[in-house]
């Protein structure tokens, strides 16, 4: 595994945003005193006139972005997920989503994999908060290739977007030539026994688990859910019909996140059990990301154990 390249999706964001800024003069970037961490500083250096550092004032940043969007510009507003989706929730609801404005909120440092900063900075409720907002599109990308695609793609769609990114460096999963489509899940591995729906940093864990389970005679279909909303109903239905066991894994509270979104579709269209893996309605703690993923049961090890004890071969 040593030859697999790793990169944090926040880094991919910074690089892609700079590229996008070169191509599209309508891109405006805002940050809240975290440009070095969210990597918007790459854009800021080359385009100082189109970059606004709003200071430690996330509510002001989001509403300013909505004002900017009414001038036919495309603002990308970035900070840590906890401050974007949490602190500025009402601004996102009333000044962005209700008026359906073309504001792109790119939130980095999502989930417990933020690590050592601890629970106050580990945003595990943002998917839930953002996907319940009418007009909002919610993305959660898993690697460098996909994130770079998403950063440009969301500039082409009209309306609010929440893009969830991570601090943790994870494997580059896809070749540069890989095609993606908003609202279409990606079937990474073929499998008939189990489907693992994963998103963001947990996709790598699902892939690792599938490799190990394959050796033990269990074939696993890994599905990368980069679009949480709108959710890909057809793929959920297909997997529910074609595989025996359904599992979801996310670096997010199991209430309201990826597992909930899939459950809603299953309840409506094809009632079937889904094993939801994620943070079990508790706050995180300090520690390194790998240790935390293990402690909170969102890693390959836990997936393997869970699948083996639930599958009837």
């Amino acid at each position: 595994m040593e030859n697999i390249k790793k990169k944090a999706t926040r880094q991919s964001y910074g690089e892609a945003l700079l590229e996008l800024g070169r191509k599209n003069k309508d891109i405006i970037v805002l940050d809240a005193d975290l440009a070095g961490a969210t990597k918007t500083d790459l854009f800021a250096k080359e385009f100082p006139d189109r970059f606004f550092d709003m200071g430690i004032a996330e509510q002001d940043m989001i509403s300013t972005a909505s004002g900017i969007s009414t001038c036919r510009k495309i603002p990308y507003a970035s900070t840590f997920a906890v401050f974007a989706a949490g602190r500025a929730y009402d601004q996102i609801r009333n000044s962005v989503c209700y008026p359906n404005l073309n504001v792109k909120i790119v939130a980095t440092h999502a989930g417990i994999t933020v690590g050592e900063d601890g629970a106050t900075h580990q945003m595990i409720e943002d998917i839930s908060l953002m996907r319940t907002l009418p007009n909002m599109t919610v993305l959660s990308t898993s690697d460098d290739t996909q994130t770079k695609w998403a950063v440009e793609e969301i500039s082409k769609i009209q309306g609010p977007v929440y893009l969830r990114l991570a601090r943790l460096a994870t494997n580059i999963i896809y070749p540069e030539s890989q095609k993606f489509e908003i609202g279409k899940m990606v079937e990474i591995t073929k499998g008939e026994d189990v489907t693992i729906f994963a998103t963001g940093v947990t996709v790598e864990q699902a892939i690792n688990a599938s490799g190990e389970l394959k050796k033990q005679g269990i074939s696993v279909r890994v599905v990368d859910v980069h679009t949480i909303k709108p959710i890909d109903k057809e793929m959920i239905l297909k997997c529910a019909k074609e595989t025996k066991l359904l599992v979801s894994i996310e670096d997010h509270n199991i209430i309201g996140g990826l597992g909930s979104a899939i459950s809603e579709v299953l309840t409506d269209l094809y009632p079937k059990k889904l094993i939801r893996t994620g943070i079990k309605d508790t706050f995180g703690r300090s520690g390194n990301a790998k240790e935390l993923m293990n402690l909170y049961n969102i890693d390959a090890e836990y997936l393997i154990k869970t699948i083996k004890s639930n599958i009837s071969m």
Partner: peptide, 13 residues
Amino acid sequence: GQGLSIANGIALM
């Protein structure tokens, strides 16, 4: 409380 931020955004543009 949100209108001044919005006005700033428009004034900035």
